[in-house]
Amino acid sequence: MSTLSESRTGKVAAASAGAEGVRPPLRAGRARVSPHRRRRRWLGLAYLAPALLVYAVVVLLPAVQGVRLSFYHWDGVTSATWAGFANYTGFVHDPTLRQAVAHTLFFIVFFSVLPIALGMSSAALTARRDVRGSGVYRWIIFLPQVLTPAVAAVVWKRIYAPAGPINSVLTAFGLGGLTRGWLGDYTWALPALGLAGTWGAYGLCMVLFGAGIQNIPSELYDAARMDGAGPLREFFTVTLPGLRGQLAVVLTLTMLGAIRVFDIVWLTTRGGPGTSTITPTVVLYQRAFANPDVGAACAIGVVLAVVSLIISLVVVKLSESDD
């Protein structure tokens, strides 16, 4: 859902990261290439050309222009002026942007750590046992992943409204004193949006870990039992190591989602109250369109891209380093 909304990008990052690791090395030493093969490879280029062209126009060229623009001050109207690194130092000097970064770290807990912990524990508890109707459960739990993010945002906005169901439930249980406008509350708005993110990412984690556990040879579990391992030790000696690959994928996906949260914030609080739920992408949108400071917006985009790349690489590296 919302967290992983534009996750087409994030998705493949992880997919490639995960898959590259598993696939056997392909046609490695291709020392001499026959004329026939070479012709085929030119033909291959022809097949690739349309995709490459579209990709260059839509992704590569703007990416390069973005880097360039990030070194300028530009209001979208008058001439752009050279800015050096001024747009980047905003990450240090600009309180709004600094806050946005802090919120991103906070969101990582809700969009990544929490769903992973929940997903892994619930998968460990249930996946190895024959549960009839597990398909139905899986369908439900994965559902948020396919729901339209804009719809999810509208739903959560209503759920957290002062007259929404959460407050009704609290009142019904005699906890009327706890009711509030959750999204207008400085303490609660950020965790409230975070929980919506947990809700969205949990299913992905659980299903993925569930699939992973199915693939762990049951002999390993039997052996652990023989050694007299309790469920806890079983989890740490068998399940967790067996899920390392899945963990890498999920970590990449959810963290990339967390640093790019936009829809749910924009459609609910617009970063408020004050700036208490503002995220880098919301700042980017504001600077790019609401009060044009295009260079600053591009700098945020560049930093997001670099951080995404680093996260993907680091996670892949970590998950495979001690193979």
Binding site: E6, R8, T9, G10, K11, V12, A13, A15, S16, R38, R41, W42, G44, L45, Y47, L48, A51, L52, Y55, V58, V59, L60, L61, P62, A63, Q65, G66, L69, L256, R260, F262, T281, L284, A288, V294, A297, C298, I300, G301, V302, L304, A305, S308, L309, S312
Partner: peptide
């Protein structure tokens, strides 16, 4: 593909560039 060693990673790079980084330009 001719130049596969460059072109495929270049294409994969696209998956790691978030939409936000290119949307403004």
């Amino acid at each position: 593909v001719v130049g596969e060693k460059v072109l495929f990673p270049l294409l994969l790079l696209g998956v790691m560039i978030p939409t936000e980084a290119i949307i403004v330009p």
